[in-house]
Amino acid sequence: MTEVILEDRSRDMCPICKTDKYLSPNMNFLINPECYHKMCESCVDRIFSLGPAPCPYPGCGKILRKNRFKQQVFDDLQIEREIDIRKKVLSVHNKLQEDFDLISEHNKYLEMIENLVYGISSGDNAHDLEIELAKFEQENKVQILERNMRESERSNDMAKFQDAMERLRQEKLKIERKMELEDEEFTKQQKQELLNKLAHSSLNSDELIQQQMNQALKRKSQRKKILQELQSEMEDKLRTSFSSAKEEAPKTPFTPFKGDRDLHKLYRLLPIPMDIDTLMAGNSDPDSYSDANLTLLAKNKEYLAAGWRLHTAVERVMDETFMGLGCIVDKEKSISIH
């Protein structure tokens, strides 16, 4: 029991200056990935602000630098250490899946990384492995840098995209707020007008109120329309500025089998109306497929709302139509038997 209490206390106490968290609640502990000995911030400032100095723990004596100190994330120092090692290894072995032809090769690569991390963090020949890693880094510096560049470019793109999205949202909010204010003003004005009219006009009061309501309704629907237009305009803008980046990726469908899907289709689709308005209009295009059931389905609101689209449906049918047309069962099965 006492041990537990002691440990609890020692966890909250700097082993160098013996300051307690209980007495100075905003003290922070830092560690250095050289030796992972824990000490408080003020100790670090005191000991290392004049330059590199040995670790004050008895029997350690490793030379530490102030800029390498960092906050501890995990309670368990073993984990903390492993994560640091992993970071280091991954910064050297930074190939991605797309750099491999086969998934199995990529898996092997990942396995190799895991073994390395484990070896360095807990193996006997950690030192050798570290030297090897450094050597590898030296030899492949150019490739590693290249891959790093690629990665950062990608994350850059992502960041930019998110930035633009955020800006778009802000703008939309601004406009909406402005509109709300206008609306408020409008209702106030209308009220006043109504009072004036009631006072002076010869018309029936019910009629007057009806008139006003109609006006308000009209305005509301107009508002809605304007808002919608604005939104679609903004989204368009965003899309055009980012579409170029998106279209670059090849659109090969995923296959659970080894190898890529053959994208050469056995058929050519006729033009199929894509947007909903023309579909709803239902005038069958003479250049497209003509089938009464199909056009009927294409107009079904429930289907459309659920995401059903004519061209995907047709595409699916066509894919299934030619699936296995070239398989001559007679021939292929008799071969597989012999």
């Binding site: 750099d99 053959d262 894919d319």
Partner: peptide
């Protein structure tokens, strides 16, 4: 880097998809 340009991936046609089905 990975030599991905040199090695060709095998390639699955729509008929091959049918060949993978239990029906076939």
């Amino acid at each position: 880097l990975g030599g991905s340009e040199t090695a060709k991936k095998p390639y699955v046609s729509i008929d091959d998809l049918y060949r993978k089905s239990t029906q076939f």
